[in-house]
Design a protein around this nucleic acid. Sequence first.
DNA 1: CCGAGTGATGTGAGCGTTCACATTCCGAGC
DNA 2: GCTCGGAATGTGAACGCTCACATCACTCGG
Lengths: 339, 339
Amino acid sequence: MGPNAEQRPPVMADVAKLAGVSHQTVSRVLNDHPNVRAETRTRVMWAIDELGYRRNLVARALVTRHSRTLGVVSFDSTLYGPASTVYGIEQAARAAGYFVSIVSLRTIDRAGVTDAIGYLAEQGVDGVVVVAPQRSAARALDDLPAGMPAVAVEGGHAGDVPVVSVDQVEGARLATLHLLDLGHETVWHVSGPADWLEAEGRTEGWRAVLTAAGRPVPEVLAGDWSPRSGYRAGKRLAAMADRVTAVFVANDQMALGVLRALTEEGVKVPEQISIVGFDDIPESEFFSPPLTTIRQDFGAVGRRSIDLLVRQIQSGGPLHERLVVPPQFIARASTSPLR
Amino acid sequence: MGPNAEQRPPVMADVAKLAGVSHQTVSRVLNDHPNVRAETRTRVMWAIDELGYRRNLVARALVTRHSRTLGVVSFDSTLYGPASTVYGIEQAARAAGYFVSIVSLRTIDRAGVTDAIGYLAEQGVDGVVVVAPQRSAARALDDLPAGMPAVAVEGGHAGDVPVVSVDQVEGARLATLHLLDLGHETVWHVSGPADWLEAEGRTEGWRAVLTAAGRPVPEVLAGDWSPRSGYRAGKRLAAMADRVTAVFVANDQMALGVLRALTEEGVKVPEQISIVGFDDIPESEFFSPPLTTIRQDFGAVGRRSIDLLVRQIQSGGPLHERLVVPPQFIARASTSPLR
DNA sequence: CCGAGTGATGTGAGCGTTCACATTCCGAGC
DNA sequence: GCTCGGAATGTGAACGCTCACATCACTCGG
């Protein structure tokens, strides 16, 4: 092996030697430092090209103490909501010049989230976004490593940490009001799982509207977001079809299950029962009938949370903000006036 | 400011001083080196705890040249398939002791993928998984940085890079054969977008079965995976309802659109037309009627690809393997024998 | 009772950058 | 021609860890 049998990728010193400058000048070129002669710059660029040099961001991170990487802790990113949120976050982070390191948890207990944040901290992320849609997960934000910038998405009352979320209560209000406006005496509700903050918010908004209007508040049918749980709720609703005329279902997947159950039992939607969902998944428009629902702007959630996180990283101090993204009502064919 | 006004997080030397050992002994404890006296170990552990020390993986990565981070290049992780694949990859990677850094591209041209891999390389990932469902994206694997271990998922003919994919052709065969077995004269096909390898595979399998059985091969109706494109295809199929009795739709979302269009036009499924989808998204079981479809095991795809990647990282050499995950036929209510 | 062997620990260098500071260069101004 | 100042460049020391090697303290067989 001669001295040229180097297998290691070229480093800054190699570029410097080839260009006939010091490693520091190479660094300056790479970092767009103003005080470099144009001719020197081109010579360095040429050498970089010649050697196929790529800078080593790990070494840079060691000295700057900034990795330009953000951590994302998420949960079951197969569900449409979390998946879209994570996608939005990733897009926004990259636009802001950050990499994204993701940990998706299967179960979402506090310890799991704390561990995940710990791993990310060791890995040197500059900040974390925690998608913590459940109470228990949100609590993990209380034991953040000192000085770690963080943002909670859909995270409820998260202590010192700023929160970005879609206004669930408002969405539920829109849905429920729409049904009351159509002349329905009251509105039934198929809820999400108990521990989820989004589920709580939706139930709360629904209840608030009914109470404010002086309408009876029917018993809540509990679901777990899955189409199957909606199907079960739908069967129960069908059995009460003489009393039920309008239902607000806490997400579109469950609404699909409800629709299916009602169809099986011969209950017509929207003629006999009106249905409103939540999320506006891409499928909703093609349900039978097309689903009236509430759209959440996940892209906006991602952008806002990254913006908040980056501002914290730059300022050093924590921000006590609470950003709310408004939901949007989408009218389709699953609701009709009470005849 | 006294000398104790340190704001910086503790480093290994701090732990060493407190425990009364050398930094190297601390390192040994952290890395489970066998030759450390039990008492020393506990003393070090105590010091670590006392200071709230966390090791700095960036510094470690600099010297070991391994970041224990894998890069994932994906594309629109909002679609059910890509989202599930990425989730499976992330789970498998973490189980294997790796972090995952994700780049999701909006558009999937070759340059974009090449750039993404380049960024990940600078960032020091030990290997990359490229979810490259399109021909153009798959081609980016030809210009990988030298010595970068890589695996393509759903990636077609990807040069030197091992590929893991679900057997699309076989899935399409299962779907088409099922329909022929029910007595249908031939099977129509709503395809995915042209550039997608998965779409090609599904069309190929469908065509192969028809040809082998000596049946007429109808014109392909082109879709783009979206429910809307399925809806448009459904309208056209409804217009030919006298000739069409069976349709294989290249994914479940489009199948939903087809279903919707047929329902609107008063065509009964499965009495007049039988439909088979592909993917088995969670919603399929609750379509009206519940959709007969082909299930893909995305978890298995994730595990296999990480396994392949980790083996490459450990062995140093590239592996020329090609792993195929079998699809599964799921019978539901959207198909029936030709009367 | 001594030297070899093994386990436990310490020492210093180096990973590839950037930072702080030192040095050199060059033209303007007197 | 000489000084001065800012632009352009170079030098050496970190950053926090692991690696290779050195050292030290024992145990054990002859």
